[in-house]
Amino acid sequence: MCLGVPGKVLAIDGMSATVDFFGVRKELRLDIVDEPVSVGDYVLNHVGFAIRRIPPDEVQETLALFDQILDVSGAKADLMAADVRGEIAAAKHKE
């Protein structure tokens, strides 16, 4: 729950942003993010809310990290992967 998944902002409409998480699109609330967010930025997601804009020079590392978390063999029994997957999967019913 506390991990926070990063995604790329595709569009912004008021307090809501369309964000791409590993190929899954999802609406994220922008009410509590620390800095103004624009299209193309990466944000950390916590329970459907952007909690932090990721500084551009850390984007690659953060993305690679999450790719890897999702990629580990035997990920089914892996709680971190399950938490990340849960966060991403939650987007799927909305489509």
Binding site: M1, C2, M15, R29, D31, H46, V47, F49, I51
Partner: peptide, 16 residues
């Protein structure tokens, strides 16, 4: 449920 990071999301909804 959750600690303050999660409570902030609940607060945002209460404020809206």
């Amino acid at each position: 449920s959750g600690f303050e990071t999660t409570a902030v999301a609940t607060a945002a909804v209460a404020l809206a």
